[in-house]
Design a protein around this nucleic acid. Structure first.
Length: 862
RNA sequence: GGGCGGUUAGCUCAGUUGGUAGAGCACCGGCUUUACACGCCGGCUGUCACAGGUUCGAGUCCUGUACCGCCCACCA
């Protein structure tokens, strides 16, 4: 590993970084250095659950940042002898892709249409979107994502990710669909998935259900309206609400059981304003006596608290919101809509029907004002409102039929899984705990969208043509994946679709996380490659960002727990975000101003990787081109220092000089530190330590041995220096290879066989064995001599700099006074120092205090 | 409201069992030195957020406070 074969040594005259990315990506691909060896047993495999980036546009700086972290770990493990299973995935399944395809081609999906094999996209997207069938729409999604994925792959290769590109998967691929559908059917058959008609969080623009994990709060202006119930009756009650438009949906009033003001009223009825609908006054501990008037109206449904009250108080439903967010038609006087004055109620409601919530709110406020039921003016406030994270309007709660995966009843088991997982950094586990503890419902996985994995289910139609949801027809496992909108269920004919006595397909697709939560199963071949699965699952590492612990990480743990009764991986490495210079999360728009590829071209991939790898696990890191320039400088330094170290690398021989041995022993300590850091997933620490060592190696050690290695102390001294130099270079190159894969490979190729990325990670013994005597006494003397040399080097440089003397002017005399031990050591290093510092005479004597004085400079004839 | 991080030089950040505050960048000065001017050498820079406590000794441990960021919950 460290030996030098002069016959294969090839040093460039002027080494440079330019072109290394293109040169080495091509060679690595040709030689297959990163190919996964699937013959190795599980114990020799290191498998990585790569995050599949969303394919809907372009990658940004944040991707470059976190994927570099994973790649450094992958390279470390590979060098340690593991067969690294490092696939890439594309997340091309989901709403962002759908939206992009709609805009890009000017189409919209209409699932009721039949597939048109002759469909051709318009040259330019027209003003009116063209309606196309679901299969046609999916074809377009596939077409556009394929283009994006090509660009992504190019960027990843240019960055130097050591991915095995033959193992790439896409979340919309047949394989992923098969895994998703198979896992869904298994859960269904085990009673762990169920469908339910229930109030569900609903986005009125996308017209789909969304899951708890996809919510975010946004501050919105609103207003408290004080409204009188029961006006004209025996008593009236005032409530406060921000959503007066839901008064028609009111099913009860509620106050705290201990609230003396309302205790006498519990169980009695009042009528709603305007519509004169009688509602009961009920007690529930969730009602807060401090808020408003201490009594609230319960509507079906204004928010999730309404759902809780509705469920726990066994109230009935008066739903007025339609899936499109408009107020539905209602017949007052009919069962469930009793009113003291149905005709008047209907007249008033007619002014709201068909309006969206904002319009309806304006209107009802006017009506309440007119009727005198609005007490005072609305009081404007700002409050947090729940949104779908990709949506533009507040979420509503709409009753609909959805599929759920059981999660709540496994809370304790999932918490235990979280503790079993090895978190890097460890404190990230608390986010998982928070989330698991705060779960308030099972996981709604059905979405009323198109570009996703369909449910592999159909439903029978009874003799009257009604859908029998209670008896879903499962697809046969062997036929997966299926599309129930075009495929026919077992036992039926195609012409029975949609007719009485026939069948209909389940129209929904799965939540994108329902597929993403199966990335280990998809990547490892759970459904179609049991041999691969056995060698790679449970996986070793899940790298990901902290913002999706509650979604991707949690859901993956849940799926693996349910399906395999195990963790999906042993380690979770959580990366931070890239922050703007103004400390905000780097937005996509800003990130796209400087495209990742332009960054890589400007600073070199190694330079950018250096910046990325400096970001510690879990820590947000500032976007900092200055650090990329530092990384580039490091790479250039490595080229030049290597050229020097190898430039006159003969003769080689026994390592006899103290400074050589001390340097190598310090390097042994570095190997230990870097290895330990990497084992703890602290790549940043490994890099930082190695880098610090390397610069000292260049600035001090190389300068110190330069003259000796050119032969000014004879062949034995030169041989010692040369052997130490090549040994150190070999180790340093390998320590830096995970971070700077291009430059380290380039230098390696000057003098070594094979790829550095398949070379063995350095170990202490390879250096220790080069030294004849490693006894404590020898080590101590060597180390002291080395430190003495560095001290003199530093002090004389300083004095020369202060004297503003050019280096070419030799120093006549340096007086060194020190204790007896240091005087002894000076003798050992004097010759090296003389040539490094151009000192003619060292006048060394025992003296106190210790001092180093440069006494004179010799004028040289110009 | 609950939780998790953070606060160290102008900037970005190290600081691993408590022992004289560090690096890089930036800035200033010097230097063509046969690995490197895409370079080299040197210099300047600090109430370690604040207040208490433990200790011979605290950037480091404990308690509290402030501010920044994030996660979760509540949002009539």
């Amino acid at each position: 590993m460290t030996s030098l074969d002069p016959s294969r040594l090839q040093l460039p005259d002027k080494p440079a970084l330019e072109g290394l990315e293109a040169k080495w990506t091509e060679r690595w691909e040709a030689s297959g250095v990163y190919r996964f060896d699937r013959n190795r047993p599980r114990a020799d495999v290191y498998s990585i659950d790569t995050p599949p980036p969303t394919v809907s546009g372009s990658l940004h700086v944040g991707h470059v940042f976190s994927y570099t972290h994973t790649d450094a770990v992958a390279r470390f493990q590979r060098m340690r002898g593991k067969a690294v299973f490092y696939p890439m995935g594309w997340d091309d399944n989901g709403l962002p892709t759908e939206r992009r395809v709609q805009n890009y081609y000017g189409v919209r999906c209409d699932p009721s249409l039949a597939y048109d094999p002759t469909f051709a996209v318009p040259d330019k997207p027209g003003k009116q979107p063209v309606s196309i069938s679901r299969p046609n729409f999916i074809e377009l999604c596939n077409r556009l994502t394929a283009e994006d994925e090509k660009a992504f792959e190019h960027l990843w290769k240019y960055l130097g990710l050591s991915v095995d590109w033959s193992m790439t998967y896409a979340t919309i691929s047949k394989r992923a669909q098969r895994v998703s559908q198979l896992a869904m059917l298994r859960l269904l058959h085990r009673g762990l998935a169920y469908q339910l008609e229930a109030p569900t969080l609903w986005d009125v623009d996308f017209r789909t259900a969304v899951a708890q994990a996809e919510l975010e709060d946004r501050e919105m202006p609103g207003a408290y309206h004080r409204i009188r119930f029961g006006a004209g009756g025996a008593r009236s009650i005032e409530i406060e609400t921000t959503r007066p438009e839901l008064i028609p949906a009111c099913v009860a009033l509620v106050a705290h059981p201990d609230d003396a003001r309302y205790q006498p009223l519990f169980g009695t009825e009042v009528t709603t304003p305007l519509f004169r609908v009688p509602v009961q006054i009920r007690a529930h501990p969730l009602a807060d006596p401090e808020k408003g008037s201490g009594i609230a109206m319960i509507c079906t449904f204004g928010d999730v608290t309404d759902v809780t009250w509705w469920r726990e108080l066994n109230l009935h439903v008066r739903a007025i919101l339609q899936p499109d967010g408009r107020l539905a038609p209602v017949r007052f006087g009919q069962p469930g809509w009793e009113s003291d004055d149905p005709t008047r109620a209907q007249e008033l409601y007619a002014q709201l029907e068909g309006k969206n919530v904002n319009k309806a709110r304006e209107q009802i406020v006017q009506l309440l004002r007119d009727s005198g039921d609005l007490v005072g003016d609305p009081r404007p406030i700002t409050h947090a409102v729940k949104f779908y994270e990709k949506g533009d309007r507040p979420l509503e709660i709409v009753t609909s039929r959805q599929w759920f995966i059981k999660a709540i009843e496994f809370r304790e088991a999932l918490l235990a899984r979280g503790r079993e997982l090895d978190w890097h950094p460890p404190y990230m586990q608390s986010r998982y705990e928070n989330w698991a503890n705060g779960l308030n419902g099972d996981w709604c996985i059905s979405r009323q969208r198109f570009f996703g994995v369909p449910f592999p289910l159909w439903y029978p139609l009874d003799a009257t043509g009604r859908v029998d949801y209670a008896r879903p027809i499962s697809a046969e496992e062997a036929r997966l994946p299926v599309d129930p909108s075009t495929d026919v269920p077992p036992g039926y004919r195609a012409d029975q679709r949609g007719v009485a006595g026939g069948f209909v397909g389940d129209p929904d697709v799965m939540d994108t996380w329902a597929t993403s939560s199966l990335t280990p199963q998809i990547a490892c071949g759970w459904a179609d490659d049991p041999d691969l699965f056995a060698r790679t699952f449970p996986m070793d590492l899940r790298p990901q960002a902290h913002d999706i612990i509650r979604t991707w990480l949690f859901d993956t743990v849940l799926r693996s727990h349910l399906e395999h009764d195990s963790l999906p991986w042993a380690h979770a490495a959580i990366s931070g975000w890239v922050l703007d210079p103004d400390r905000k999360k780097m937005s996509k728009s800003k990130g796209n101003v400087v495209t990742p590829l332009a960054l890589l071209e400007e600073h070199g991939s190694d330079g950018v990787r250096y910046w990325a790898a400096s970001g510690r696990p879990g820590t947000d890191t500032a976007f900092d081109p200055a650090q990329m320039r530092v990384g580039r400088r490091l790479a250039i330094k490595l080229l030049n220092a290597s050229k020097f170290a190898l430039g006159a690398a003969e003769p080689q021989g026994a390592i006899v000089a103290s400074v050589d041995r001390a340097m190598l022993r310090n390097l042994v300590a570095l190997v230990g530190e870097a290895t330990e850091a990497f084992e703890a997933y602290d790549y940043a620490r490994a890099l930082q330590r190695t880098e610090t060592f390397f610069w000292r190696f260049c600035d001090d050690y190389l300068e110190l041995v330069k003259g000796r290695r050119y032969g000014d102390q004879g062949p034995e001294g030169a041989a010692s220096a040369n052997s130490a130099l090549t040994a150190a270079l070999s180790v340093l190159l390998r320590l830096l290879a995970p971070f700077l894969p291009f430059v380290s490979e380039e230098v390696w190729s000057w003098w070594q066989e094979g790829s550095i990325h398949q070379a063995a990670w350095p170990v202490p013994t390879e250096l220790e064995s080069l030294m004849a005597d490693n006894s404590a006494a020898v080590c101590q003397v060597d180390q002291a001599a080395y430190e003495c040399a560095i001290e003199v080097l530093f002090e004389v440089r300083k004095q020369r700099s202060e004297a503003k003397q050019p280096l070419k002017v030799p120093i006549t005399r340096v007086i060194v006074k020190a204790d007896a031990l240091h005087v002894e050591q000076m003798r050992i290093v004097e010759a090296d120092l003389k040539s490094a510092l151009r000192v003619q005479v060292f006048d060394v004597s025992v003296g106190d205090p210790r001092e180093i004085v440069v006494q004179g400079y010799q004028a040289v004839a110009s």
